[in-house]
Amino acid sequence: MLLKDFYSVIQSTKEEGKIITQIRINKDHVLYKGHFPDRPVTPGVVLMHLFKEEMERQTGRKLQFSKASNVKFMAVVDPNVDDVLILELETEENFNALNLKGIAKHNGCVALKINASYN
């Protein structure tokens, strides 16, 4: 885990080729003291990294980020509004790469859409 104690997994299920994982964000994490003290916002790079960590957890493999496309940040993730984040992941193996289509939902709306590859 890149950020110690940043989140915990509530539950994870596999449905129709998708992995759906609910996590609880630690709204008291030190990250939010600097980003930002009066209005905490989860950094986009951290949201992107959550997908990598979840894929490592699911596959039992250490992965390295290779590339991303169609990265769309669509809503702010404020842990004081709703500290539960839902990650939806669809993956496929292609030679040495693990390709991911991911959606992060927060407080009933899409916060991030991403297509990424990992080695």
Rank of each mutant, 00 (worst) to 15 (best):
L2C: 06
K4P: 04
D5N: 15
F6S: 03
F6E: 02
Y7N: 02
Y7Q: 07
S8D: 14
V9H: 05
I10Q: 08
S12Y: 07
S12L: 08
E15P: 01
E16I: 00
G17M: 00
K18N: 08
I19H: 11
I19E: 08
T21I: 05
Q22S: 09
R24I: 01
I25M: 04
I25G: 00
I25S: 01
D28Q: 14
D28C: 07
D28W: 06
L31F: 09
L31P: 10
Y32V: 02
Y32F: 15
Y32R: 04
G34V: 01
H35E: 01
H35T: 00
F36G: 01
R39G: 13
P40V: 01
P40T: 00
V41N: 00
T42M: 06
P43W: 06
P43R: 03
P43V: 01
G44L: 06
G44C: 08
G44D: 09
V45L: 10
V46G: 07
V46N: 09
L47T: 04
L47M: 15
L47I: 09
L47H: 08
M48G: 12
K52Y: 00
K52F: 01
E53L: 14
E54M: 04
M55W: 12
M55T: 10
E56W: 07
R57V: 00
R57D: 00
Q58H: 11
Q58P: 00
G60V: 03
G60E: 07
G60A: 06
L63Q: 06
Q64S: 13
S66R: 12
S66T: 12
K67W: 12
A68C: 09
A68P: 04
S69Q: 14
S69D: 12
N70S: 10
N70Q: 13
V71Y: 06
K72E: 11
K72G: 01
F73C: 02
F73S: 02
F73A: 05
A75V: 06
V77R: 04
D78N: 15
D78P: 07
D78C: 03
D78H: 03
P79Y: 11
N80T: 13
N80H: 14
V81Q: 13
D83M: 10
D83G: 08
D83A: 13
V84A: 03
L85W: 08
I86C: 09
L87P: 00
L87V: 00
L87C: 02
L87H: 04
E88N: 06
L89D: 06
L89Y: 05
T91S: 14
T91V: 14
T91E: 13
E92M: 12
E93I: 04
F95Q: 14
F95T: 05
F95H: 14
N99P: 11
L100E: 13
I103A: 13
I103F: 09
A104L: 15
H106M: 05
H106N: 13
N107T: 04
G108M: 09
C109W: 07
C109L: 12
C109D: 12
V110N: 15
V110I: 15
A111D: 03
L112E: 05
L112C: 06
K113L: 12
K113V: 02
I114K: 01
I114P: 01
I114V: 15
N115Q: 15
A116E: 09
A116L: 05
S117H: 09
Y118W: 13
N119T: 14
N119M: 15
